[in-house]
Amino acid sequence: MYATRPEARPATVEVFVDGVAVRVPAGASAAAAVLLAGSAAIRETAVTGAPRLPYCMMGVCFDCLAEVDGAANVQACMVPVVAGMRISRQAGARDALMPEAGR
């Protein structure tokens, strides 16, 4: 669970985390948006289905893999938010044949 501090960084960018609109500060990553949205998980592992949230936030651990604008297994901590971005949970192994939007 994370909270913004509007006095320092106003939440000005609207993105959608698992379909729910959430406003986050510009400069935040997609992974940060998931933490700010209070999601229970950003992914479920492909091995055992265990829930995970971001761990390192600096591109090392790959526990923040998520679907970002339809692209699967994106390292969400490396992607800055843009207005309207859709971030959703990566549920285990991706479906390879599912067509992706915008990619």
Binding site: M1, Y2, A3, T4, R5, A8, R9, V24, P25, G27, A28, S29, A32, L35, L36, A40, A41, A50, P51, R52, L53, P54, Y55, C56, M57, M58, D63, C77
Partner: peptide
């Protein structure tokens, strides 16, 4: 340490720097 909600302190600092956000 793989449970959601367990993170590196560096990660929390990055939340502060990039989003001004703090853990609640």
């Amino acid at each position: 340490w793989t449970l959601p909600g367990v993170m590196g302190m560096g990660a929390a600092q990055i939340m502060l720097k990039t989003a001004g956000a703090v853990p609640s």
